[in-house]
């Protein structure tokens, strides 16, 4: 591959990685607070539609983005209701959320299929975009990609440098102790799930407002599941999530370019690459993940004392 092609590949990886990174960061917040949310796929699908329809009707991409985030928050609020209030199993509730979210997006979206919207356009950042190599890779995208550059830092700051973040992590590690210290772990968890939902929602909105500018069924295309896997790859750390999302985007972009340059490898095998890579990476990182990062009370509901 020529240098230009490699640069193009990496630029494509940034774009493909952005929605996944948003969702991964959202899931990190949720899991740090102790709530496993397997409904990311459904959240992304529904928020992609909410973002699209809002932008389509109001003409404002920013309102659309907000609507996407809010849709994510609301749907995750449902997850929170089932798991925090009614103590439902988190794995099953998450799966139900995926069924419901993807189904609802398809159901509501059917009349709008094949319509397009303005959304976000690409903006080359002045000066930065002229940098050699780095410019074309990182600074010739749309505004949501730039927003995405800031989000890992924001999430890291929230989790590690604020008292709210401390509370969230306490709710995920030792809810009983947190409660004894006068915190309200239930509410913190609910906040974590819904804040995470907002970020996942931004990921969904990215798909319908920036990556493409149109609506059809299946926009989320399995990216939510990838995000759930990347959380473990990332050891629940925002910084590593960036690497994971970028790596996944690169593999996807790589297999497409391999086909485009003309190869005789069957496409089924190439398409396996990202998933196989996820497993392999998990294999190499899991031993460490067990020691570092996994919230101790992840997936365990807080039982009411009586």
């Amino acid at each position: 591959m020529s240098p230009e092609l490699v640069i193009a590949l990496l630029a494509a990886a940034v774009q493909a990685g952005t929605p996944i990174l948003f969702a991964t960061l959202g899931e990190i917040i949720s899991e740090k607070a102790g709530v496993l949310n397997l409904g990311v796929e459904g959240v992304m699908a529904l928020s992609a539609f909410a973002a699209f329809i809002t932008c389509h009707l109001t003409g404002s991409a920013w309102l659309g983005l907000l609507a996407g985030g809010m849709a994510g928050t609301l749907l995750c609020g449902l997850h929170s209701l089932v798991c925090q209030v009614f103590l439902g199993n988190q794995v099953v509730s998450g799966l139900a959320l995926t069924l419901f979210g993807v189904g609802l997006a398809t159901f509501l979206g059917t009349p709008y299929v094949g319509q397009s919207t303005e959304g976000f356009a690409k903006i080359a950042l002045p000066l930065l975009s002229d940098l050699p190599v780095l410019g074309p890779i990182f600074f010739r995208h749309d505004v949501l990609v730039y927003l995405c550059y800031a989000s890992p830092v924001a999430v890291w700051f929230l989790l590690n440098r604020t008292s709210l973040g401390l509370g969230l992590r306490a709710a995920g590690e030792m809810p009983a102790a947190a409660a004894a210290a006068g915190l309200k772990p239930q509410r913190l968890r609910a906040f974590g799930v819904m804040a995470g939902g907002f970020l996942c929602g931004l990921g969904g909105a990215y798909l319908s407002l920036a990556h493409t500018h149109l609506w059809t069924t299946g926009l989320s295309g399995g990216r939510g599941w990838v995000a759930v896997a990347l959380v473990i790859f990332a050891f629940w750390r925002p910084g590593r999530a960036v690497i994971g999302a970028f790596l996944f985007g690169s593999v996807m972009a790589f297999q497409l370019r391999l086909q485009a340059t003309g190869t005789n490898v069957p496409s089924s095998l190439l398409l396996m690459l990202p998933y196989a890579l996820t497993v392999i990476v998990l294999v190499f990182s899991a031993a460490r993940a067990r020691r570092s990062g996994a919230p101790a009370a992840l997936g365990v509901n807080i039982e009411p004392e009586d």
């Binding site: 990556h211 059809t216 295309g221 485009a260």
Partner: peptide
Amino acid sequence: FDPALEKDAAVSLLDV
């Protein structure tokens, strides 16, 4: 059913 992937595929062809 994956417009984003279809678009990425087109971009990869434009790249070559």
